[in-house]
Structures are given as C-alpha cells and as structure tokens.
C-alpha cells in the first residue's frame, strides 16, 4: 500500500468520467458519421473502465488460482467486460458498414449535407 495507489485510483476515475463525457459530446456535436462512431466507442470504453476499476484490489493478481497468491482481482467484471467489448466491436463494425453504404447511396457521410439534400429532393417533388 503506497501513496501512489489512491492517486492512481482517482486518476483512473477521472479518466472514466472524461471519456464518458467527451465521447458523448463527440457523438452529439459532430456531423461526420465516422467521427460520431469514434465518439460512441470512447463512450463505451468508459463503461469498461467503470466496471473493471472496482474489481481491482490493491496488491491482488489476476484471478488464476495458484498457491502462491491469496489476493485476486474480482473475476466477474472482467468476464462481463469481455462480453461488452465484443458487443462494442459488433456495434462499431455494423456502424462503419452502414456508413460505407450511406456513402455509396448519398455520396457523403456528413449528416447535415445528407439532410440538406433530402430536403431539396422533397421540395423538388412537392413542386
């Protein structure tokens, strides 16, 4: 138990919250569809930290049973987050695939440009 440990804990907590807020901000503020997905990934990553941090026990090792160690990190959060990471990859992959298809169909991946074009099409049709 050193003085550094609580500081690290504080810092990682800070990182968690920063990633969460920054990720969400990027999703909302950016019009570029790839950047939005980047933001989304950041946002999800913060959750991985959120789950894993409390499982960390100071001085504990990875949860592999061995007579040499008595203190282990809690294994359940790790298992959960492995699943969550897979889900995150799936989401990102699907999102990127959609962006590719959107670029093929609309010729751009800027959200506001697409909306502007759709509006133009609608006005044309109504006239």
């Amino acid at each position: 138990m050193t003085l550094i440990d609580p500081l690290i804990a504080l810092a990682t907590r800070g990182v968690t919250i920063f990633l969460m807020v920054a990720g969400l901000y990027v999703v909302i503020a950016r019009g570029n569809m790839v950047k939005k997905l980047v933001g989304l990934s950041l946002f999800q990553s913060s959750v991985y930290l959120l789950f894993i941090l409390p499982g960390k026990i100071v001085g504990g090792t990875a949860p592999i049973i061995d007579p040499a160690f008595e203190v282990y990190a809690h294994p359940l959060p790790h298992v959960l987050i492995l699943t969550a990471i897979v889900v995150g990859i799936g989401t990102l992959a699907l999102g990127l695939a959609l962006v590719v298809r959107i670029r093929e169909a609309f010729g751009t991946i800027e959200e506001d440009e697409i909306l502007a074009r759709e509006d133009a099409v609608r006005v044309e049709r109504d006239e």
Binding site: V27, M33, K36, L40, T91, L94, G95, L98, V99, R101, I102, A105, F106, I114, E118
Partner: peptide, 11 residues
C-alpha cells in the same frame, strides 16, 4: 433513407 434511419437508430 432506410440506411440513414438505421444509422441514427444505431447511435
């Protein structure tokens, strides 16, 4: 526009 709807829903 289905692509757009899907993307927006994904986000």
């Amino acid at each position: 526009r289905a692509l757009l709807a899907a993307y927006q829903y994904l986000i």
